[in-house]
Amino acid sequence: MNPLLQAENLSYSIKGKPVIHPLDVRLRAGELCVVIGPNGAGKSTLLSLLAGSVRPDAGSIELAGKPLRSWGAAQAGRLRSVMDQDSHVAFGFSVAEVVRFGRTPWRHTPQGADDEHIINAVLARTGLHGLAGRTVTTLSGGERQRTAFARVLAQQTRVVMLDEPVAAMDIKHAESTLGIARDLAREGRAVVAVLHDLDAAAAYADRLILLDAGRIVAQGAVAEVARSALLSEVYGTRIDTWIDPVDGRVRVAPARNFARR
């Protein structure tokens, strides 16, 4: 099957300093792809490039078989949704109103007729019904982030891009959000997420991309990338990985040798 999003030879630099060295990325339908890497590795920059927020120095990006730039703003908005790190909202819109913003690209289309039903379903799916009438400016950082995630869900796109979607969330909501992200992939969407929590990345990802200093150091199945030696070298600190005896999944945690100190 053709990838929904395909980037080739993508490179980007800021003031002559390369941030992304030429690399290829493919996102396929049905797959949750998680990008990991240390601070400054270029994860968010890569996502911004794939989202079309910044123009690459070189390389091509194709969304659903056509160059990304050839889609109009609304067309692109019906194909891919993006959750930025910043979930700030300038005015006192209610949570439900912010979620409705996600329906904007579908205005004047047959799918736009069902907005209210979709907004209700998204609020229920993200557990935000109780907050629907609350003003976003009065919410906590985690609640704002959940609202931003719900807005992205309401957009109902085939490609979903999430930049540190759970950074401000408590563990319950982080887990349910990542669970929904994986379900989106199971529904046949292509989902890419930047995550800092390596254990969560290993648990939810179908494929991992390990980025370091603007280069893809490794990519592939979780077991291939989430290896102790590789992660320890890239992050510059000892990281242990092991197989969970209960469900057979890869677990990742930093080695914390308090006894040695």
Partner: peptide, 21 residues
């Protein structure tokens, strides 16, 4: 009016939501 609301999310989120900012 309708599109103006989305600028409250910031330029990048507004354009990702289908607004030609």
């Amino acid at each position: 009016a309708g599109r103006l609301d989305l600028l409250a999310l910031g330029d990048s989120a507004a354009s990702h939501s289908g607004v030609n900012v």
